[in-house]
Computed example of a mutant assay.
Amino acid sequence: MNWDDARIFLSFAREGSFSAAAKRLGVQHSTISRRIHALETQLATPLIERSANGFQLTASGVELRATALRIEKEMLAFEADNSGQNEDPSGELKVTAVANMASSILMPLFASFCRENPSVDLRIEVTNDSVRLAERDADVALRQTNSPGETLIGTRLTTVASAVYGSKSYCAAVHTGESSENWIGVDCCDYHRTWTRQACPDLQHSLCVDETSLTIAAIREGLGLGFLPCFIGDSDPDLIRFREPEIQHNLGLWLLYHRDLRDTKRVKVFREHMQRAITDVSHRFEGKLN
């Protein structure tokens, strides 16, 4: 049995389905199914079985998962100890960030890093979901949180403030009593979802959206109010603050990585670059208008 077969099986064991494992590895659904079935034939024992709730591991599958996890841990530790230690940083660096932040305020910082470190292959991936850094879904995660994971280490880069925004005409109409105070239902992240529920406990929304760009578009159309990070809301000339930022809505912007990568050269250089570069735009993150 080779490691690639074990890696494919481990991906299935983590995700619980052929399709999810295929998406994680970037291969076809049929590839996952075929390789696992071939592995079962090679080992002469079933590893997975269908149940009422989908698929589950057999006793042999559970044992193989434990073995594969140990192998993966050793290989990742070896890679961390023996890669990216050259004086000049080089190689691939996978960074994950929230889409609206990566495509706007952070992109100039990424660009300057690429110019300063041409031998590093910077790969930016965007997601609002949690990323398993211990399993090397990414090398570095830029995340908004006030409670980074205990298994991770990192640097708090700045504070991300949020405020309630509306279109200029809509806010004026609400203040004069011509329009009622309506809220756009948002499902882009846990934070804005929770804050919207607190501001609008009856959950009566004429429009619900699940992505920040849709929230912005709806606010521009005068469909109601919504929470936005200040670096987004303040940069849009069609929007205005309906409520000023409140301290309970502040989030830390963290640069996180697994402790095994702390001494990897390209990770260290990226961390130091972001710490320096973020100072030029920290006022925008913090919602300081002057």
Score class of each variant (00 low, 15 high):
W3C: 00
A6Y: 07
S17V: 06
F18H: 15
L25S: 10
G26V: 01
V27I: 13
H29F: 13
I32Y: 03
S33D: 10
I36V: 12
H37Y: 09
H37D: 08
L39T: 02
A44K: 15
A44W: 01
A44L: 10
T45S: 15
P46T: 04
L47V: 02
E49D: 12
R50T: 13
S51Q: 11
S51L: 05
F55W: 15
V62T: 11
E63I: 03
E63S: 14
R65H: 09
T67W: 04
A68C: 06
I71R: 10
E74L: 13
M75H: 11
S83P: 02
G84V: 00
E87L: 15
S90W: 01
G91F: 00
G91D: 09
K94A: 13
V95T: 04
T96W: 01
A99L: 12
M101K: 10
A102K: 06
L106F: 08
L106Q: 05
L106Y: 06
L106E: 07
P108G: 09
L109H: 07
R115W: 04
R115A: 12
E116M: 07
E116F: 00
V120W: 05
E125N: 14
T127P: 07
N128V: 06
S130F: 09
V131E: 07
R132N: 11
L133E: 05
L133V: 07
D137F: 06
D137A: 10
D137K: 08
V140C: 02
Q144E: 14
S147I: 02
L152V: 01
I153F: 01
T155A: 12
V160T: 05
A161Q: 08
V164M: 00
S169Y: 01
Y170R: 13
V174S: 08
T176V: 10
E181Q: 15
E181K: 10
N182K: 15
W183H: 11
V186H: 09
D187L: 09
D187Q: 11
C189D: 15
Y191N: 12
T194F: 08
L203C: 14
Q204W: 01
Q204D: 14
H205P: 05
V209Q: 09
V209F: 04
E211S: 14
E211N: 09
T212Q: 10
I216Q: 01
G222E: 00
L223K: 14
F227I: 01
L228M: 03
D234K: 00
D238H: 10
L239Y: 04
R243T: 05
E244I: 06
P245C: 09
P245D: 01
I247N: 13
H249V: 03
N250V: 02
L251D: 12
L253R: 03
W254E: 05
L256A: 05
L256V: 01
L256I: 02
H258G: 03
D260I: 03
L261V: 01
K265M: 11
V269W: 10
F270C: 08
R271M: 07
E272V: 04
M274I: 03
I278Q: 05
I278F: 03
H283P: 07
H283T: 03
R284G: 02
N290A: 13
